[in-house]
C-alpha cells in the first residue's frame, strides 16, 4: 500500500468519524430542545400587545424585544422557534416511523419470501415510486384537509409517511435478500425456526446499521417536506408553531422583518444538516475502509 493510498484511507476514516460525531451531537441537541423546549422558553402563543409590536404594528427586530424579536402578531420568535421544534420534530418523527414500518413490512417480506411474492411487491414499489412524491403529498394533504382529521397534525404526518416508505422497502428488501442466503440464516431455517423468528432474531439485528441510516435520512427528508407542505398552506393548522408554518406566515414580512424567515429557516437547515451528517457518518463507518 503506497503512502498516498494510506493517507487517503486515513482521511476517509477521519472524515466519516467527524461527520458521525458532529451529526450525532447536533441531532441529540436538537431532539433535546424539541423535548425540553416548552420548559426553557415562554408560551409561543402569548402575544405581547404592549411591547411586542412597533407603534405602527410591525414586528420588532432581534434584540429589541426578546433575543430573536417578535412576529407580526407580537409573539416572541425565540419562544416559537424552540416551542415549534417539538411539533416539527414530532411530525417528522411520526412520518418516519410510519414509513419505516410500512417499508419494513413490504421490504422484509419481499426479501425473505423471494420468488413471486418478491416480484409482485417490488413491482408495486416501482409503481408508487413512479408517482412524484411531493405532488402526491400535496394531493393527499389537500384531500385529508377536507376530512375529520383536519384540525390536527395527523394528516401531515400520515401524508409524509404514506409517501416516503418506498426507499426503505427497497433497501431492506436488498438487505434481506442477501441475508436470506447467509449461513446463519440457512442454519436457523434448517433447525426449524419459523419465518417470523428468523426475521426478528436473525435478519433485523443485521440490518440495524442500514436502519439507522434510513431513519436519519428519512427524518431529514420529512423535516424538509413538512416545511414545503406548510409553505403551500397544507401544513399543520394554526396556531401550532412549526418551523414550516413560521416561514409560511413570515414570508409576507421578509423584507421588513427578515428575522421571521432567518430564524425558522436556520432551524430547519441546521436540523437537516445534522441528520444528513449522522446518516453519512454511520454509512461511512458501516462501509469500512474502501
Amino acid at each position: 500500500m503506497s503512502a498516498h493510498t494510506h493517507a487517503k484511507l486515513a482521511d476517509a476514516l477521519r472524515r466519516g468519524r467527524s461527520a458521525l460525531w458532529i451529526g450525532a451531537l447536533l441531532a441529540i441537541a436538537i431532539v433535546a430542545i424539541g423535548v425540553l423546549g416548552p420548559l426553557l422558553v415562554g408560551d409561543p402563543l402569548a402575544r405581547d400587545l404592549d411591547g411586542g409590536l412597533t407603534a405602527l404594528g410591525a414586528p420588532r427586530g432581534p434584540g429589541v424585544a426578546g433575543l430573536l424579536g417578535t412576529d407580526d402578531l407580537g409573539r416572541d420568535v425565540l419562544a416559537r422557534v424552540i416551542g415549534g421544534a417539538g411539533t416539527s420534530l414530532a411530525i417528522a418523527g411520526a412520518a418516519t416511523a410510519i414509513a419505516l414500518v410500512l417499508g419494513g413490512i413490504v421490504g422484509l417480506t419481499a426479501g425473505h419470501a423471494g420468488g413471486r411474492v418478491d416480484r409482485v411487491l417490488m413491482r408495486g414499489v416501482d409503481l408508487v415510486l413512479a408517482f412524484p412524491a411531493l405532488l402526491l403529498a400535496i394531493l393527499l394533504a389537500a384531500l385529508l384537509r377536507e376530512s375529520a382529521l383536519a384540525r390536527s397534525s395527523v394528516p401531515v404526518a400520515l401524508t409524509l409517511g404514506l409517501v416516503g416508505w418506498t426507499t426503505t422497502a427497497r433497501v431492506l428488501r436488498d438487505a434481506a435478500r442477501t441475508l436470506a442466503r447467509a449461513e446463519h440464516v440457512v442454519a436457523a431455517r434448517a433447525l426449524g425456526a419459523s419465518p417470523g423468528r428468523i426475521v426478528v432474531r436473525h435478519v433485523l439485528p443485521n440490518v440495524a446499521g442500514v436502519l439507522v441510516v434510513l431513519t436519519a435520512l428519512g427524518f431529514a427528508q420529512n423535516l424538509l417536506a413538512e416545511s414545503a407542505l406548510s409553505f403551500v398552506g397544507l401544513g399543520p393548522p394554526p396556531p401550532a408553531p412549526t418551523w414550516g408554518r413560521m416561514l409560511f406566515e413570515g414570508r409576507a414580512y421578509y423584507r421588513t422583518a427578515p428575522h421571521l424567515i432567518v430564524a425558522p429557516g436556520l432551524a430547519i437547515l441546521l436540523s437537516v444538516v445534522a441528520f444528513h451528517l449522522l446518516a453519512e457518518g454511520v454509512r461511512a463507518r458501516a462501509a469500512g475502509p474502501r
Binding site: 431529514a220 424538509l224 416545511s227 414545503a228 409553505f231 414550516g244 416561514l247 414570508r251 424567515i261 429557516g265 430547519i268 437547515l269 437537516v272 444538516v273 444528513h276 451528517l277
Partner: peptide, 11 residues
C-alpha cells in the same frame, strides 16, 4: 452539496 441538499428551497 450538503448545504444544497439541506436548505429548504424557499429559503
Amino acid at each position: 452539496a450538503l448545504l444544497g441538499q439541506s436548505a429548504p428551497p424557499f429559503v
